[in-house]
Amino acid sequence: MAGSNFKDKNIQDVIGWVLRGGVIVSMAVVFIGGVIYLYRHGSSTVSYRQFQGVPAFVQSIGGIINGILNLRGRAIIQAGIILLIATPVVRVIFSAIGFILEKDYLYTAITLFVLLVIIIGMLTGRGG
């Protein structure tokens, strides 16, 4: 791939920044949420022995947004976790754009397929 080296390097730089930025931002959000959660609920008792899912207010996007507006710690943590999960997905989207710019259509197709698999997981996760 002699002629395309320059652009490959560009993709690498962008991907590097996306990954680093995503981790830093999401961890900062998780940390802030954690501090609020401990401040509000630090002395309550908690047990994870029995699986009972997560509290209802962090189960849906609407609930999380509502929770953030009310400064609920666990809603903020969950938002940070969603940002973290989104980081590699955004990386895949940027790879796709990079391959399109390089006119590497084989890899554009491969990348879009990977994206499709993740979207299928999002849409069918609850049903299966």
Partner: peptide
């Protein structure tokens, strides 16, 4: 990261990812 994100979107909807527990673990 991408592999884990693919299963994480499923786990998230199933309630496997508890914020109170995940916070200290991930940090």
């Amino acid at each position: 990261g991408v592999t884990a994100a693919a299963s994480a979107v499923v786990y998230l909807q199933r309630g496997y990812i508890d914020p109170g527990l995940s916070m200290p673990v991930v940090l």
